[in-house]
Amino acid sequence: MSCGNPHETDCSEVLDHLYEYLDNEMSDDGCAKFKQHFDECHPCLEKYGLEAAVKKLVKRCCGSDDVPTDLRAKVLTRIQLIRAGEAPAPVPEPSAEVEAAAEGSPAS
């Protein structure tokens, strides 16, 4: 996606790091660059607005669900591996607790 106009920060860079921006995981300088880009680029601003709305909807609809402790630990470990640039660990088969939580029923 691009509006066709040159920007200091390329549209592809903005879209590749959009969730870091949405999750407040960027430096102040990075946030300032993205804010400037959104001021200049309507297509990226629209994409930002759409993703922000989806994130808000998911939080409202799913924000109160309890996450199994082992699933949370596995996800955090995988995130750390990816951020460190290491090969991601293979995704294990879901446990009975995870499958039951996904279906909304207690594990047997």
Rank of each mutant, 00 (worst) to 15 (best):
S95I: 00
S95C: 07
A107P: 00
L45R: 15
D10V: 03
H42F: 09
C44R: 05
V58N: 09
E20L: 13
A52E: 15
R72H: 11
K35N: 09
A96P: 10
H7M: 04
L50C: 11
D70Q: 08
L71Q: 03
M26T: 12
N24W: 08
L18W: 05
K35S: 04
L15G: 03
P94G: 10
C11L: 04
E86P: 02
T69I: 09
K55G: 14
E103K: 14
E99L: 08
G104Y: 00
H7C: 10
C41F: 01
V91S: 06
C31A: 09
D39V: 00
H17C: 10
L71S: 06
A100Y: 07
H7Q: 07
D16Y: 08
L57F: 15
R83I: 08
A53D: 15
C31V: 13
P68Y: 14
C31P: 00
N5P: 00
P88Q: 12
A107W: 03
R78Q: 02
D29E: 15
E8L: 10
H37C: 02
Y19K: 05
S27H: 09
V91Y: 06
L45F: 12
C31N: 07
S64R: 11
A102M: 10
I79M: 07
P90D: 11
F38W: 00
P90K: 10
K47P: 00
L71R: 06
V91M: 10
E13F: 05
E25R: 02
C44Q: 01
H42I: 13
A89H: 03
E86A: 11
R78P: 00
K47E: 12
R60N: 15
P43E: 06
D23E: 12
A89E: 13
S108Q: 08
V98K: 05
D28C: 07
D10I: 01
K59G: 14
I79G: 00
S108A: 10
D23C: 04
P92Y: 10
E99N: 09
F34L: 10
Y48R: 13
H7I: 00
S108W: 01
E103L: 14
H17I: 00
L71Y: 09
K47D: 11
C41S: 05
R83P: 03
K47I: 12
P43C: 05
S105Y: 04
N5H: 11
